[in-house]
């Protein structure tokens, strides 16, 4: 399989992960999705959620396969965006007080896909070949993700200033999560939280790394940024307990797809 082929598969996984995430929230709006365990899936799903997810998931799967195989990518990409926007709206309605938006539930694969669809659409309209239009689309997807990382850094700078990266701020964030998860992970989080050096390193890595993420818009910097992103997500998974598969794979997928 070529690098672009692997990238397509990874991007498809990102899309499916995003869909599964939203579907879970729509299917189980009365369960403790984050603080509960897998036993949630043994309980009855919401009828409304079941109807919507049951009706749209086959279309989403077909569109994902079509997009990843390069079959009518504009149409399949637009269908994917429409479905993701739709389930996101439903998710927002079913979870009160706008917490889906307020508490940081992001959709990086959809953002990159939007960049792809817009740039590819413009390229096709201006008479570019399929190969050039595809390359333009993935370039735009990379730019969007670089922008997303920069925005994350900018938000920290605007709301907390340079002090965001201070060891104590990171220690508090990590220790708050040392009361959940498997016991060895809890112990590790407490140990890291008690080390000002490690916490400072984590803070500096996250803060400045997100600004540097803007370099993903430049082709030569994509692989270093993708590796940075994977390491950042591994750190977030271990220390904060969020398994963000979509964020973990998206930069690698885009680095491969943009050649």
């Amino acid at each position: 399989m070529t690098g672009a082929g692997i990238g397509s598969v990874l991007f498809g996984i990102c899309l499916l992960h995003s869909w599964a995430n939203s579907s879970t929230h729509v299917l189980y709006p009365h369960e403790a999705v984050y603080s509960g365990g897998p036993s949630m899936f043994l309980r009855s799903a919401s009828k409304r959620g079941l109807a919507v997810v049951g009706a749209t998931t086959p279309v989403f799967l077909l569109a994902t396969v079509a997009f990843c195989m390069g079959t009518r990518p504009l149409l399949s990409g637009a269908v994917l965006l429409g479905l993701m926007a739709g389930i996101r709206q439903l998710e927002r309605r079913m979870w009160h007080d706008e917490i889906v938006v307020k508490l940081g539930k992001y959709v990086p694969a959809a953002a990159a896909l939007l960049g792809y669809v817009v740039a590819r659409g413009i390229a096709e309209l201006t008479g570019q070949t399929d190969e050039v239009a595809n390359a333009a689309g993935w370039e735009a997807g990379c730019g969007v993700m670089g922008g997303a990382f920069f925005l994350a850094g900018l938000a920290k700078l605007r709301e907390s200033g340079m002090s965001w990266s201070k060891a104590r701020n990171q220690a508090i964030l990590i220790v708050e999560r040392s009361y959940s998860g498997p016991m060895p992970v809890r112990a590790l989080r407490k140990w890291v939280a008690a080390s000002p050096t490690l916490c400072l390193a984590a803070g500096l890595y996250g803060f400045y790394g997100e600004f540097l993420g803007l370099l993903f818009a430049v082709s030569w910097a994509r692989w270093p940024i993708a590796i940075f992103s994977v390491l950042l997500q591994i750190g977030i998974t271990v220390l904060l307990g969020y398994i963000e598969l979509e964020w973990m794979l998206i930069m690698v997928a885009l680095a491969l797809l943009s050649g």
Partner: peptide, 14 residues
């Protein structure tokens, strides 16, 4: 959707 300011954890400095 799919735009965002990505402000999760941005205010922890306070």
């Amino acid at each position: 959707f799919p735009f965002s300011r990505y402000s999760m954890y941005a205010s922890i400095g306070a």
